[in-house]
Structures are given as C-alpha cells and as structure tokens.
C-alpha cells in the first residue's frame, strides 16, 4: 500500500495533495494491467474507475459506424483518464483502449465519490484538478476542431 501511495503522490495530477488525502485515495486504489487491445472503458458502460496511467498508452476512441473507429485523444504515463466517475450518470462516453501493455492505478469511482461527499476538502481538491484537466482537454479539442493544418478555402 505504501508503494501505491508513493506512486499516486508522485503523479503530476496529484501534486500537492496532503498525506491525509493520499491515504484516503489509496483506500480506493488498485493496480491493474491491460494488454494491448484491452478496453479500460466502453462507451455507455458504468464509469467505475478513474485511471492513473503508470506505463503504456491508451487511446480514447469513438465508434463512428461506417467511418470506423475514430481516435480522439491518447493518454500515456503521466496522464490520468476519466472524469465520468465524478459526473452523473457515471457512464463512459468514449471507449478507452490500451494500445500497448498498459499499467494503471485504478481508483474506484464509487469509493472516491463517497470520500468526496464525506470530506469536501478532498472533494474540492480533486474537483479542482479535474476541472483543470477538463480545461486542458477542451482547449485541445477546440484546437483539433479548428483543423489547424487543413486547407480552408
């Protein structure tokens, strides 16, 4: 468990969290391994976890029917994955597929939500970090929408 705690504490997303919060998070954490091609999340399924990527490479995808599987974002070691555990109705909106062997710390969403409700300091600390992550993803998504390198005549 101490190992989990240090891994969580050293992750960029968790920078600055106090001991108490880290201990609480560890209580919800488990080590998980995904082989290439395994899904960490499936669209429409309950968002049971929040992933801290330790190693590997995960692709966020959407199945666009006849257009095929479209990748929209990738995350790798140093990133986190998923905020659906925090937001009702707690369901994934995208597929998340391991592109290669991927090791993560999976934090149980229900467990996290409970702790956040019980201790709003923890809730706020996590919410701030998730909000920042959302802002970064939204900015990146807007840039992708601009199609910066496309021809616009």
């Amino acid at each position: 468990m101490e190992n989990l705690k240090s891994v969580i504490g050293e992750h960029p997303f968790m920078q600055g969290l106090d001991e108490h919060t880290l201990d609480t998070l560890v209580g919800c954490a488990s080590n998980v391994r995904y082989n290439a091609g395994d899904y960490l999340a499936r669209m429409g399924q309950p968002a049971e976890h929040f992933f801290i990527i330790r190693h590997g490479h995960v692709s966020l995808e959407i199945n666009a029917g006849p257009r095929g599987i479209i990748g929209v974002h990738t995350v790798e070691a140093g990133d986190v994955l998923g905020w659906s555990w925090l937001i009702e109705p707690y369901k994934w909106h995208f597929d998340a597929r391991a592109v290669e062997l991927t090791r993560v710390i999976a934090l149980n969403g229900e467990c996290l939500r409970k702790k956040c409700e019980q201790d709003h300091d923890i809730g706020y600390a996590l919410m701030k970090r998730v909000a920042q992550l959302m802002e970064q993803r939204l900015t990146a998504t807007r840039m992708q929408l601009l199609d910066m390198y496309g021809t616009h005549v």
């Binding site: 966020l60 095929g68 599987i69 990748g71 990738t74």
Partner: peptide, 9 residues
C-alpha cells in the same frame, strides 16, 4: 482512425 498506434492530440 483506430488503427493508428501513435499519439492523438
């Protein structure tokens, strides 16, 4: 597309 193994972003 889903076949790309590299970064998207």
């Amino acid at each position: 597309l889903g076949t790309w193994k590299g970064n998207i972003g």
